[in-house]
Simulated scan of single mutants.
Amino acid sequence: MVGLKPSDIPPTPAVKFIGAGTAACIADLFTFPLDTAKVRLQIQGETTGSAAVNGIRYKGVFGTLSTIVKTEGPKSLYNGLVAGLQRQMSFASIRIGLYDTVKLFYTNGKEKAGIGSRILAGCTTGALAVTVAQPTDVVKVRFQAQANLHGVKKRYNGTMDAYKTIAKKEGIKGLWKGTFPNVTRNAIVNCTELVTYDLIKENLLHHKLMTDNLPCHFVSAFGAGFCTTVIASPVDVVKTRYMNSPPGQYKSALNCAWTMITKEGPTAFYKGFVPSFLRLGSWNVVMFVSYEQLKRAMMMSKQRMEYAV
């Protein structure tokens, strides 16, 4: 057995909620530079923005990472990390931590869930999470898009300053900018990610190809990351561009998508695909492996505490 053994008692909703948020933060710490590279590649081609103004061109994921380090310093790879961690604690806790609970709700308490119930649960928790965590996502994207170049005025001086500035200049609605494409994206991402992970893991165990340990979790998470990237990339690009745009650049998320396809062609929807996959694939692996181990560790601690009493 690789890693901690599964608990004899199923993890409680509270354990899943806390474990999901913590595991997502761990995954973000490892993969954040890839997410920053993805954002820079996704907004490339817009007529506005610091990178466009300064004539900087990004080529490929590693070229983008290298360019950011050379022109802005290594710290810029972690622009928006504070907002990113805030996002994961409020976002992943809901979308991942509550998935099994909502799935049981849709199956009326039955352990065996059909594909329809899984999809509904994924869409529900994904959409619910966005309504709570949207402001943190807006701030994270804006920081990642912000180039820290000499002579260029910073858009925001800090995380709290970003929240205050956006609310002051764009109103409270500005903090929820891009909610529609983000709800769409995260319903798709959550649904694909969790359902695919669920199904791959379930089939590996059912056909006895693997046991319920780290290699099984790794394979399931990697497969979920690839499927999710392919399906969610177009919505993700629109979400990133719309959330990063200044007031008035796009009338709506649909207008943003239409502008992209008319000016840059359909391939614009897959800009940043490689860093998206590298980031989402590695994020899924770190998150799900951490999540499974954290759930087991917390349940073991809980049982020890109960025995001690």
Rank of each mutant, 00 (worst) to 15 (best):
K103F: 03
T124Y: 12
A147S: 07
D137H: 12
N108M: 08
Y99M: 11
A83R: 08
R142K: 10
G126Q: 14
G97E: 06
T107Y: 07
N108F: 05
C123K: 08
F91W: 14
F105D: 00
A133V: 10
N148I: 05
I115R: 10
A147R: 10
Q86A: 12
Q86N: 13
V132G: 04
E111A: 15
L120Q: 13
S93Y: 12
L149D: 00
A92Q: 08
A92M: 11
S90W: 10
N148P: 00
P135G: 05
V139H: 01
S117W: 13
A133K: 14
G126N: 12
T107M: 11
V139L: 01
T101K: 10
A127R: 12
R142H: 02
T125C: 14
Q86S: 10
Q134M: 10
G126W: 13
A127K: 12
A92F: 14
Q146N: 04
A121G: 09
G97A: 10
R87Y: 12
V139Q: 02
Q88C: 15
F91R: 04
T107A: 06
T131Y: 13
E111P: 00
V132M: 14
I119H: 09
Q134L: 09
G114H: 08
M89W: 10
K110I: 02
R142V: 00
V82R: 11
Y106L: 06
G116L: 10
F91I: 12
E111L: 13
Q146L: 06
G109F: 07
V82Q: 05
I94W: 15
K103A: 11
D137K: 11
Q88S: 15
V130P: 04
E111N: 09
M89R: 06
